[in-house]
């Protein structure tokens, strides 16, 4: 019943999905921003790897929010940004 470990099913991980490029263009237009102005997400992030997103993709994150019920956020997948010392 335990099954294979899939981090996407963990309680703390909200639903992630890659936004298709056509949709991404509309989205950025609607928000009136450039992709880098979105919050970032490292390409090394385990979830990014699990859903197969590539650097340059926009990931839609559907979070459960205590104030809004469901909240849709976006993150921009970037190559290793802040090298940790």
């Amino acid at each position: 019943m335990n099954g294979k470990i899939n981090i996407l099913e963990h309680e703390l991980v909200p639903k992630h999905e890659v936004v298709p490029p056509e949709e991404a263009v509309d989205l950025l237009k609607k928000l009136g921003i450039e992709p880098w102005q979105l919050p970032w997400m490292s390409a090394d992030d385990p979830v990014v790897k699990a859903i197969g997103a590539k650097p340059g993709d926009i990931v839609r994150i559907i979070r459960k929010s205590p104030t809004a019920g469901v909240f849709v956020a976006y993150r921009y997948v970037v190559v290793e940004v802040t090298k940790k010392s």
Partner: peptide, 14 residues
């Protein structure tokens, strides 16, 4: 550790 294993969104939630 949560960030490393479960990703940044899980870290945010944590």
């Amino acid at each position: 550790e949560i960030e490393r294993v479960l990703g940044i969104e899980a870290a945010r939630a944590a």
